[in-house]
Design a protein around this nucleic acid. Structure first.
Lengths: 144, 144
DNA sequence: CTTGACCTAGGACCTAGATCTAAGGTTTAT
DNA sequence: ATAAACCTTAGATCTAGGTCCTAGGTCAAG
């Protein structure tokens, strides 16, 4: 069991952020001490880390709340609804993955061109690096 | 040449957002009309799209400003500095990629388990799906 | 039994990022 | 030549996501 300060320190966030997440229905401590102190379990910590990771890759707290609320209830026909939500989030993740992969390629190219690359004159900015990596090339090379 | 309203509409953002980006040194129109209207080129549009994509994958405007300022100057020994910045951003991108891949796996698993999967009872929440996907398993299976 | 580190609730305050308002100038179409 | 749709600047306002402040309660160590 962690008290608020312990969990906050372990995850390198502010105590108030934990209170804020509680108020905003993202993470509530599993219990309270006699005197009202918040008590968090290992599982609470896992949830917190999930929240922090999700935030880091660009999900809003509202989206994270949705992700956390996903429950496949096999006995329930809300299952189709759940699947729809999951698939929607999956598409969002896949779009982000595609963007990031593009950034990665460009930055690698830029890194390689820099300091020692013979072709450094070619790829001078992140934008040029990205352009040569573009797949929706339009109205270019139209000289026949 | 796009006027502010045209570019904004083309990229599905607000006119004011473009003025905001200009004030914050992210994107300035290449020129102005006689009467002072902002005039954006195709290249400006590319930069804008870069900004929007970067935002979408969780970069702050400050980080995006840094990315945009990257210039490999082959005649200059600031090159090492540039490489360092690029490599720092590359690490950030690769961390995000790893996180996203993890989300993707979990969401896929969840989607498959739902509506028709026979193992749906096993993977009921995004958290459980993630847990079984965790590679930093700690203090588990310690019964000898 | 008190000092210091911790906790409580409730509300004020802050930053980033964006959007809106006010007062007016420009362009295009009729 | 005048309305409608667009643009200008400057500054106020809004939302998300926190962070800080006040006034007080809790708890371990000396």
């Amino acid at each position: 069991m962690y008290r608020i300060g312990e969990l906050a320190k372990a995850c390198d966030i502010n105590n108030d952020t934990l209170r804020f997440y509680e108020k905003n229905a993202l993470l509530s401590p599993s219990s309270r001490s006699e005197s009202g102190y918040r008590l968090y379990t290992e599982k609470d910590k896992d949830i917190l880390q999930f929240i922090l990771r999700a935030k880091n890759v660009g999900f809003t707290l509202a989206e994270i709340r949705e992700l956390l609320s996903i429950e496949v209830n096999k006995a329930d026909n809300a299952c189709a609804d759940v699947k729809e939500l999951v698939d929607t989030k999956l598409s969002a993740v896949e779009r982000k993955l595609a963007e990031l992969t593009r950034f990665q390629t460009s930055l690698k190219r830029l890194s390689d061109a820099c300091c020692g690359g013979e072709e450094s004159a070619e790829h001078c900015t992140i934008l040029e690096a990205l352009e040569s990596n573009t797949d929706d090339v339009r109205h270019e090379h139209h000289h026949d």
